[in-house]
Design a binder for these strands. Structure first.
Lengths: 166, 166
DNA sequence: TGCGGCGTTTAAACTGTTTAAATATTTTAA
DNA sequence: TTAAAATATTTAAACAGTTTAAACGCCGCA
């Protein structure tokens, strides 16, 4: 942390806001990257690539989701999900089954191997989170989580075009 | 936000810790993704791709860094940086110049266009950060930043192999 | 029955990422 | 001084993620 500490000179006129929003943006990006880096180590032990963990986790919560649902939930576009699922199917973590009702739909299910993987990475993520919050008090962790979620909400509702929550 | 709110049943034995570290990991990943998504819109207006912003920002702080330094600072491997710099050089944001002292070294400098870009994205990042922290009090923003940095520190010092800070 | 809408998939094009190997240059040692 | 070791960049090959646009198939309604 040999960057700058928080408040620079602010030689321009408006000395109103010492906290730079840019710093926060930078910090969260950096932190997320570190987290992902650390996490990807454990993930790769389970045979997963970064980004695939979201799929199995999502499926663990509710099995048999459609690619479209998964894509929306995970914040990626449908073709991305198709690709990811394809790879994960080849790896044996999930399998596709057509929906009985609607012929357009494909549903994605966890395989036995996938279920096992969920447990494994669940533990890894837990450990990773614990490592990340070393020295945090209960309250701090809770606060961080809360602020993060509010921020997520702020960002997610950005007025650009289509922002369809489920 | 119709996910789950924070505490599930916890039907297994240990009802010790209601705060799941996994949730935090998930939240930060999600938030960072959203941030990056929003940010990339502004970035693309300046002609930058996600990931390139770090380079110009880093260069703005200290011009004439080597690819190796940049890579280390930005947490990527050298070949990645070579590629990124190559592209950015083609785009006209930076330029490479050999070091006078050491023939092995290449140093990367911001071009006039690159400098302009720094200003532009600086403002964008600021706006983006402001948006992200809508409704945050000064204190909350500060707390978040602090917690994020502690977390970054926790994660960055992970005992794997070579972890050389500058 | 035909046609529009919806969901998945395919295709094409980029970017980012890594490891391993190649190249060039500096530094060290004999 | 000459040869070997170390350092830094680059190249190459291989994967993964991402997006937009277009194709394909199925559902529903008129």
């Amino acid at each position: 942390m040999s960057k700058k500490k928080g408040d620079k000179k602010n030689k321009a006129g408006k000395a109103k806001e010492p906290i730079a929003a840019a710093e926060l943006a930078s910090a969260i990006t950096q932190t997320a990257r570190s987290l992902r880096t650390v996490l990807s180590r454990s993930l790769s032990e389970a045979g997963l690539y970064a980004g695939q963990d979201g799929v199995v986790l999502q499926l663990a919560e509710q099995d048999g989701q459609t690619p479209g649902q998964l894509a929306q939930r995970l914040g990626v576009k449908a073709p991305t999900m198709t690709r990811t699922i394809g790879r994960m199917e080849a790896q044996g973590f999930v399998e596709r089954r057509p929906d009985g009702q609607d012929g357009r739909l494909t549903k994605v299910y966890l395989t036995a191997s996938g279920r096992l993987t969920v447990e494994k990475i669940g533990r890894s993520i837990e450990e990773c989170g614990a490592l990340a919050t070393s020295g945090f008090s209960q309250k701090e962790t809770r606060t961080l989580l809360k602020l993060l979620r509010v921020m997520e909400g702020n960002l997610h509702g950005v007025p650009v075009m289509d922002e369809d929550e489920e």
